[in-house]
Write a protein that binds this DNA or RNA. Structure first.
Lengths: 151, 151
DNA sequence: TTAATCCCGACTAATTTAATTGGAATTCTT
DNA sequence: AAGAATTCCAATTAAATTAGTCGGGATTAA
């Protein structure tokens, strides 16, 4: 029940982009540095996110990446699905499969829990947007660096 | 976000044992056959479940395994934790770790979703007992083989 | 005594993960 | 026009994990 680093890093990077949304293209190098992720590895991940239409890119010097939509319109579920594949604790409750592909009737019993689990996972991931999380990030930053009161 | 076959098979096997609870020890071979699982592989899984105190074993001919407690007192979460390890979508929200081990403050933002996700996963897994699932299994069986009405 | 069963440890092939490497193409700045 | 900064792309790789297999020892009911 673990995400791989693809999902983990991908969400971090997307929040980073959300925090800079509206500032024009952000270089991947700077994202990688702030989030302590290998730049080359992050390149692979963002390539998937670009192909999936979640980010846009600008090539050349001063280029970089931007969210393709406002942070409020991209959910963690969107990002995780691109980087980790369809959300399904076991194959037979894969959300992208229409038909039940249980080969054995016994499986159908366990299928009940796995479906409930899948739905509860998607509920959380699909109801959390990048805007929600960057708002939290800003709150935290405020707490970390409190206002200074001069005499 | 996938369970390995350890968790998947383990839950199947435990439901099988739940369906035979009270009948004395059940040979692993029969469980493996009913659930279409390699017996040798299942042996490894049940060894973990035995060491964790979820099943008891009886050696020798006519031996086998039984649930250590009534099906209503064993949850899917119990089984999954033994076979898959602590429930945590990412390491930094590992339920078995007391302290926050986020090395980077940035992580703390994503941590919010992962915690919510973890809690929603545990909520589902810990609220479903083997008794719940074997009740469902019996319902299904009844539907599969409906009563015959003679003229 | 024999067959059925649990118990144990070592081995393995395939797959996945988490990168690394090296370079080509594009574009801004000077 | 040159150079630097960047995205884009494909191939390679080492380590870990997964999903078993294999072979045999110990225990016990019949």
């Amino acid at each position: 029940m673990r995400l791989s680093t693809r999902g983990e890093y991908g969400v971090k990077a997307m929040i980073d982009l959300a925090l800079h949304y509206g500032e024009g293209p952000i270089a991947l190098k700077s994202v990688a540095e702030r989030q302590f992720i290998s730049e080359h590895y992050l390149e692979q991940l963002i390539a998937s996110l670009r192909k999936a239409g979640l980010v846009t890119s600008v090539r050349g010097a001063q280029g970089g990446y931007e969210l393709a939509r406002p942070p409020g319109e991209i959910t963690v579920g969107d990002v995780v699905r691109v980087l980790e594949g369809p959300i399904a604790p076991v194959e037979c409750v894969d959300e992208s499969q229409e038909f039940s592909n249980c080969t054995h009737s016994e499986s159908c019993v366990t299928r009940i829990v796995w479906k409930r689990l899948r739905d509860s996972i998607t509920q959380v991931l699909d109801s959390t947007t990048l805007a929600d999380l960057s708002a939290e990030a800003r709150k935290m930053q405020a707490r970390e660096a409190p206002p200074m009161y001069y005499i």
